[in-house]
Design a protein around this nucleic acid. Structure first.
Lengths: 256, 256
DNA sequence: ATGTATCGTTGATTTGAATCAATGTCTGAT
DNA sequence: ATCAGACATTGATTCAAATCAACGATACAT
């Protein structure tokens, strides 16, 4: 899985689309290459039979994105559904005056762009290089409506995201800067672990500003708090990540 | 719809269960009285045929709750699913040291207690007197699995809640006290409007502490901010509510 | 190798909301 | 009618994090 924020220098199949900050690159114009898909056990696709798979794959395309490239923008027509297969993307909402709140970092297996409204209610762009299966919304919805097992899987995914969103509301409403940082580090480590990315060092491919906008803090407070945790020997700051030195202490800070 | 936080003095059918702060009162032991249900157009029940309805009604019971009565508690076994039919309830999470974050106020039509885990991830208690249709979880899930149209409806409901939760994340992470109060008042008015409660005066049946715990503020800041809005003639504070005097100004403050 | 732009850290100061403290108001019970 | 307790408001003070400001570090392009 890509977690270093470097450019895709040799796109797997086709060259990136003209505008490097939008659109991305269709890897397989004939549909997803689902057999070797590294997130089948995480995504909805593993609930389908081979026959169903064969049909489903025709519906979408795999698309690659450079770091910072846009998947879609708040208020644009919600014409596509995405299922992330590689990398990390950020979901965020902007206030008219430019204040930004990152409402989530998505990892492989996560769905993006599911909406009831005709427009997206947030923007998404790539943190690392990323790859997603992209489906035309109408076609995706029709297929889901005809495939209850997929609908159930989708509902589980949304229910899980709602649970995480409520957990984040507690963090944003009631926790101190230090608790927010600790909860962020522990939470991200656990999520990465679940998608199979297991390392002694926690990769932090997003910028300090991203972390700040996710935790409702400023970049200076994020930097100071990480420095303090490092000074206290709770973590070790390394390039593009941190290493946990006192995991139990971090988990206590993050408690609940 | 009940929106005044007064006790149910004459429970519609049966007397309240012994412990007034827990359990509530089963209104109709034979199942919901669905024909006259005031929220059928809001709830999932309106997607069912008469035959389906007849079967579905057998699955649950209507239960009444006094103000402050508990529907369920965080970490308890998630054995029931609720569909609120009357009144307002609060959903909240507690940190080990007692800090509280209210993650939502539910209104008629809302589902409560849908979970992937074996336990509830938050607590719910009544703000006003409230009535809910209560279903044993296993039975509810089996029925939903066999009824795709219900599953779809449920998924839409969860998707909508996720959208609201993300909106609240922006509020908690990036907005000032005044903006939070304005967004809360406008948002609640709009939600009440949608469930058919339309009044010149916005009812605020919850306490100032509840509002504070929903907006990530203290009770003093909520009080001061409401007083300031009243001094500026943007709202008029009335017993158990407020009246909008300058709706457009309030909507501008709440913007986005 | 060097310059440049972006990103991150650290320090000084300010500030919005929290905390501490007192008083006011409403409601239901007697 | 009076009282008690819960709830709400207002004022004084403190504080955690924001803001303002300067300086490092790093990565990429030439």
């Amino acid at each position: 899985m890509l977690l270093q924020p470097k450019k895709i220098k040799n796109p797997p199949v086709a060259p990136m689309a003209g505008n490097a900050n939008f659109g991305g690159c269709i890897l397989d114009p004939a549909g997803c290459v689902c057999e070797g898909c590294n997130i089948r056990p995480l995504s909805m696709c593993n609930v389908l039979t081979s026959d169903e798979m064969r049909h489903f794959r025709e519906l979408g395309h795999s698309v690659a994105y450079n770091p910072k490239a846009t998947l879609f923008v708040q208020d644009d027509p919600a014409d596509h559904i995405f299922n992330l297969t590689e990398g990390m993307v950020r979901l965020y909402k902007l206030l008219p005056d430019g204040r930004r709140q990152i409402v989530g970092f998505a990892l492989p297996g996560d769905f993006l762009g599911l909406a009831l409204e005709p427009s997206y209610s947030f923007s998404v762009d790539a943190v690392t290089g990323a790859v997603a299966c992209r489906f035309p919304r109408k076609i995706f919805e029709e297929y889901v409506d005809r495939t209850p097992v997929l609908m159930k899987r989708l509902h589980q995914s949304t229910t899980n995201e709602l649970m995480m969103a409520r957990q984040q509301m507690v963090l944003l409403g009631r926790r101190t800067a230090e608790e927010r940082i600790a909860a962020f580090l522990v939470g991200l480590r656990n999520r990465l672990y679940r998608v199979g990315y297991r390392s002694a060092t926690l990769a932090l491919p997003m910028s300090r500003q991203d972390i700040a906008d996710y935790l409702g803090l400023t970049i200076e407070t994020v930097s100071r708090t990480l420095t303090k945790l490092a000074r206290d020997k709770v973590i070790l700051i390394v390039p593009n990540g941190v290493r946990f030195l006192m995991t139990d202490k971090l988990e206590t800070m993050a408690a609940q």
